[in-house]
Amino acid sequence: MPVYEGVYGLIAEFNTPTELVNATKAAHNAGYRRMECYTPYPVEEAAEALHFHKTGVPLMCLLGGIMGLITGYGMEIWVNVWGYPLNIAGRPLFSWPAFVIPGYEWTILFAGLSAAFGMLAQNGLPQLYHPLFNAANFRDGATTDKFFLCLEAHDPKFSVTETRVFLEGFSPVSVVEVDH
């Protein structure tokens, strides 16, 4: 694993979501791409302003559901037709109506687990360390009443001096340099 050193990025602190969203839109227009918003509750405009990508969770959920359906239904067919055939009230061995409910349950189970684990696999959780917690104002405000925009240092357009001037143009409460 590479050792990260130096500046992680610059975070600007705002008091209202509107200021955050406006600053984010302006940063996107100015050409910044490696950036993130941090808000105490979901602000969908912030996600829109970031041009947040669509996640793969719905697809993983769907694929998991289909896998569950095939597994559950296939298992029922295998058990009843080949594995352990039983004559139940003279019904055919392949009694498809009876297999629907286990197939359905497996669909739900696999879909639910795929959604949950697929989400974890894609968003990088659990994460034990994040550089932003080095900033004292972030630790205090990010989960209560402050709205943060972080422009990250690995953006090609990032410059410690110019980006700071750019962020200060939005009259934030503060702009803090965050180290790794």
Partner: peptide, 13 residues
């Protein structure tokens, strides 16, 4: 933008 503008007017209002 000032702190007084709480975002309840304008394009997002």
């Amino acid at each position: 933008m000032t702190h007084g503008n709480s975002g309840h007017h304008g394009p997002n209002g």
